[in-house]
Structures are given as structure tokens and as C-alpha cells.
């Protein structure tokens, strides 16, 4: 029983409450860095690192922080981890760090992290917060990789720098420009909405069928009885 609920804690961030597609959190980096799949993955990994560590720390000291200053304390904790990520990236991956530019330090104000801190890890145990953060981080990673791949594929005919589309394909420059980011994200959101609308309709039809079936049964029963 406990194991199942732990699993759910992890999975809900990937599907039901995906930060990018369901909660519309952290839109700035989602749109800004997804020029290519690699950039998206790097950004998402950096964000997930900060998310997991700050969630664990916040959950650890949740009983020590007075509630009046909690937001400020969360921000300081998050900013410290962002500084760590930024310095490590500058030292280890200078090119990637230059490409992502100010968006790495902007993880500080990413609403996903503050949102999880306020909504989850300030109220739950360390292990649960860890799983929740990991799930949300994974959901964010998948979303950014998806958007990055689509934009890279149509914008330059490649994914992860491997040529996918034939050489005759004329790349759509607009997909790499800011406008392409907005439009890709909007279309993806719409298709996900469409899927959930259809799911709801099927559920409704099933329920109606069940009700009709029950009614028929009861009618038959009453006929037999009479």
C-alpha cells in the first residue's frame, strides 16, 4: 500500500500534473532554450537538480522556518543551488553555459521550484518530497526534450545533430525563432487538451451506456416479476 502511494508521488509529476503541459509552470525556459533538443535537456537537467536538492533541504528544515519568512528562505535556498549549478556549468561545459546564457540563473524564479516548495515539500516528509521533485523534474525533462526535438527537426532537419529529414527539405527558419516557440507550445497544448476532451467524452458515453443498461435490466426484472 505504502509502496503504491510512493510510486504515485513520483508518477503524478510526469503525467497528470506535468509542470509544462498541465500546470503551465516554468514557461520562460520552456520557450527560450528549446531551440534544440540538447539545449532543452541541459536546461531541464539543471532545473531538476535544483528542484530535487532544494525540495529535500526545504522538507528537512520545514519545521524550523517561521511561516512569515518562508518564501524568502525558500528563495535563498534555491538561489544557492542555482549558483552551484551555474558555476559547475561554467567550469565543465563552457559552451553550453554560454548558449543558455542568463536562463540558467533565471532558474531562481522558475515557478516550478517555488511552487513545489510551497505546495509540497513544506508539508511532506523528506522522501516524499524527493520523489515528488524527481517526478516533476522528469516531467519537465520529457516536455523540454519533446519541444526541443520538434523545433530542431522542423527548424534545421536534425535531432540531436543527426540529420533526419532528407537534404532537399527546406528548413523552416521560423521554428528556431521566438515565434516558432510560441506556436509549437500552443499547438502541443491544444493537442493535449484534445486528447483529454476525447477521454472525458468516452468516459461520459460509457457512464450513460451503463446507466441505460441498468435501466434495461431493471425494466426486464420488473417485467419478469410482474
Amino acid at each position: 500500500m505504502i509502496r503504491i502511494s510512493y510510486w504515485r508521488e513520483f508518477v503524478k509529476g510526469i503525467l497528470d500534473q506535468n509542470p509544462t503541459f498541465r500546470q503551465l509552470l516554468g514557461t520562460c525556459p520552456t520557450l527560450a532554450v528549446t531551440v534544440s533538443a540538447v539545449n532543452g535537456i541541459a536546461m531541464a537537467l539543471a532545473t531538476s537538480f535544483v528542484l530535487v536538492f532544494s525540495s529535500v533541504i526545504i522538507s528537512m528544515i520545514r519545521k524550523l522556518i517561521p511561516s512569515q519568512v518562508r518564501i524568502a528562505s525558500y528563495i535563498v535556498i534555491i538561489a544557492s543551488f542555482v549558483t552551484i549549478v551555474d558555476l559547475v556549468m561554467k567550469a565543465r561545459f563552457p559552451e553550453l553555459s554560454k548558449e543558455l546564457g542568463p536562463y540558467i540563473p533565471l532558474i531562481v524564479v522558475n515557478c516550478i521550484i517555488l511552487g513545489r516548495a510551497e505546495a509540497f515539500s513544506s508539508k511532506n516528509t523528506i522522501f516524499r518530497s524527493f520523489l515528488d521533485a524527481l517526478g516533476n523534474g522528469t516531467g519537465f525533462l520529457l516536455a523540454l526534450t519533446l519541444i526541443g526535438s520538434i523545433r530542431e527537426l522542423i527548424g534545421s532537419g536534425k535531432i540531436f545533430n543527426f540529420g533526419i529529414l532528407p537534404a532537399e527539405f527546406n528548413p523552416w527558419l521560423v521554428m528556431i525563432l521566438p515565434a516558432g516557440a510560441f506556436i509549437t507550445y500552443g499547438l502541443l497544448l491544444a493537442s493535449i487538451n484534445q486528447i483529454s476532451i476525447r477521454k472525458k467524452r468516452i468516459k461520459k458515453e460509457k457512464m450513460i451506456e451503463e446507466i441505460i443498461g441498468k435501466k434495461k435490466e431493471s425494466v426486464l426484472l420488473s417485467e419478469v416479476a410482474s
Binding site: 503551465l24 525563432l177 510560441f182 500552443g186 499547438l187 487538451n193
Partner: peptide
Amino acid sequence: VPDAFKGAPITLIVAGILAL
């Protein structure tokens, strides 16, 4: 607006056109 596009999706697409 089609149901699936209501709310955020259509806003994002309009923003894309504005960016263009």
C-alpha cells in the same frame, strides 16, 4: 475558438504571431 484551443493554447499562438 475550437474547444481544445480555448485558454492558453490560443493565447500562445497569438503571441507567436505577435512575435513574428
